[in-house]
Amino acid sequence: MVIEYIRYRVPQQRRAGFEAAYERAADALRAAPECVDYELSRCLDDPACYALRITWTSVDAHLDGFRGGPVFGRFFAAIKPYVADIEEMRHYTRTGVRGPGGAAPPSLFEWAGGTDAFERLCAAFYRLVRSDDLLAPMFARMDPDHARYVAVWLAEVFGGPATYAAERGGYRQMVGQHLGRAISEAQRRRWVNLMTDAADEVGLPGDPEFRAAFVGYLEWGTRLAVRNSQPDADPIQQAPVPRWGWGVAPPYQHGPQSTVARGAE
């Protein structure tokens, strides 16, 4: 993805019309498959200055797809009277220098209790698995360190250190654990149920906000794991380790319109 910044200097007598024009232009951005999101900001120190941020899926998607597409005419018609007020219009890419500040809410990893909480969770979960008729055969040849590996994966997914990516091979390794296993829907549901039972047993936070996010990931990840495990599956082998927050994780885009399936072990 790329970020386009357009900086305007708009005289006071034209500001109301300018903001109204972008309200109309926003309809085109919302309809454009090349546009991820957008935001128009006004400077508090110098109210004549505006900054428009638009995230595009790529530079080509913006310059060729959007500008050559069916909604650009509506967009440009709305903002055309203000083109002369543009001071800068450039594309940017994100760097690795970013992260939450002190006012940000704690990560799910922190809220759960850190690495120790996920290690206790997985130890309890796999103890339940070993006595479960449906799941025990799936894990009969489980590596002695399997529970710890899954704890490290979950810790990273929920906002903890990127240990699984650094030491275990990241997403590719996780996908490989599911290939050819033909996981059934009944097994998937039992996995989710036992994981939530384990969460209760070890005392993971029970507040609705945490549990909604926690179970949301379990549902999302296990459904993708089922898909990736089928005999005819052809999952993407390279993708980031998902990072799950208090809301819904965005899909990982591979190509113009396809969503990559990512799973949980």
Rank of each mutant, 00 (worst) to 15 (best):
V97D: 07
D85I: 02
F109Q: 06
Q238C: 04
L179W: 02
A239E: 15
V2M: 07
V215A: 03
R90C: 09
E34K: 00
P242R: 05
R15F: 12
H146C: 04
A213E: 11
T55E: 15
K80R: 15
A199D: 07
Y22N: 04
A165E: 15
A20H: 15
L108I: 07
Q12F: 08
Y8R: 05
Y8F: 09
V192Y: 00
D207N: 10
S41R: 13
W191L: 03
D234R: 12
R94H: 13
E219A: 02
W111M: 06
T115Q: 03
T196R: 09
A31P: 02
H146P: 00
R120K: 14
E23P: 05
H62F: 14
C49Q: 15
P231L: 04
M138T: 07
M142P: 03
Y164R: 10
P205F: 11
A155F: 01
I6F: 02
T95G: 12
Q173D: 13
Q237G: 06
T95N: 10
P11I: 06
G206W: 06
V59R: 10
V175M: 01
G69W: 10
R188F: 04
V241E: 09
A51D: 15
D60G: 07
I236P: 01
A84Q: 14
G99A: 13
D27I: 09
R127T: 05
R190T: 05
P100C: 03
M1E: 15
V248R: 13
A186S: 13
D116K: 07
A84D: 15
L135E: 06
A213C: 10
